[in-house]
Amino acid sequence: MSRLPITKTPKCFLGGAFIRSESGRVYEHKDSAGAFVCNIPLCTRKDLRNAVEAAAKAGPGWAKRSAYNRGQILYRIAEMLESRADELAAAISLTNPNAAASREVRAAIDRTVHYAGWTDKYESLLGSVNPVSTPHFNFTVMEPMGLIGILAPEESPLLGLLSMILPAITSGNTVIALASHGEPYPSILLGEILAVSDLPGGVVNLLTGTRADILPTMATHAHLRAVYAAANKSERTEIQQGAAEHVKRTVFLPSEKPIDWFADDAQGLYHIRHFLEAKTTWHPVGV
C-alpha cells in the first residue's frame, strides 16, 4: 500500500494567522472533473469584522513604513511567488484546465515587481508643491485612505486578486479581500506566501466564501474607507447604497464584460491613485 499523503486543510490568512471561519462552516471545493479537493472556509460577516479589526491594527504601522521598505517587502512577495510558481499554476489549473495558468502566475509575479517599484515614486508624480499667491508654503501629499475592502473577480483567481490588492497596499493601505468563490485555492496559497514575505500581519487579509455573505457587510462597514469590487450592476448598486451611509469611496470593475487582467493598463499609477487621499498643508513663510 502506497503512503497516504497528508492533505492540507485550507485556512484563511487573517491578521497574519491562519484561521477557519468563525462560523465553523465550509464549502466543498471540487476540481474540474468534479472530484472533491478540500473544504474551503465559508467566511461570514463575523470573519469580515475580525479582518477589519486586524487590518485596522496593522494600518498605521504599515503606512509609516518607509516607501523603500514597503517596496522591498513587495519585492519579497514576488520572490516568494516565484519560488512556488509551479504550485500556484497547478492550483489554477485544478479548477480551470483551460486557463493559461503559468502565464497567469508569471504575470502576477511581474505585476508584484511592478508595484514594488512604485512605492517610492507615486508620491512625487501625484503630489505637488502648489504656488499659492499668499506668503505660504503649500504642498499636497498623497496619503493612504486606510482600510480597503476588495471583492476579487471570479476569473483569474491569482492575477485578478493580486491586481486588486497590490495598488492598495503599495501606498500603505491595508486590505480585506474576498477571493474568487469558484476558484479559491490560489488565495489560500497566496496567504501562505504572504505569511513568509515579511509583510506585517493584518496588511492583507484574505477571506473565502460567498459574496452573499460578505458583500452587504463590506458595503456598510463604517471602518472601511473604500470598496474596490469587480462587480455586476446589481452588486454595484448594493455596494454604493451601503457605501453612502459613511461616504465611502467605491471603485468598480464592471464584471459584465470580461476584464483583461494581462493588459498593460491593468496596473500602474492610476490604480494606486484610487486609494489615496490628497492632503494639502499650508504654512507661512516668514522669519
Binding site: 499659492v132 499667491s133 505660504h136 494639502t280
Partner: peptide
C-alpha cells in the same frame, strides 16, 4: 484634506 499650520482658512486655486 487640508491642514493649516500657523494659519487658517486660506484658499487658492492652485491648492
Amino acid at each position: 484634506g487640508v491642514v493649516w499650520a500657523n494659519t487658517y482658512n486660506k484658499f487658492d486655486p492652485a491648492s
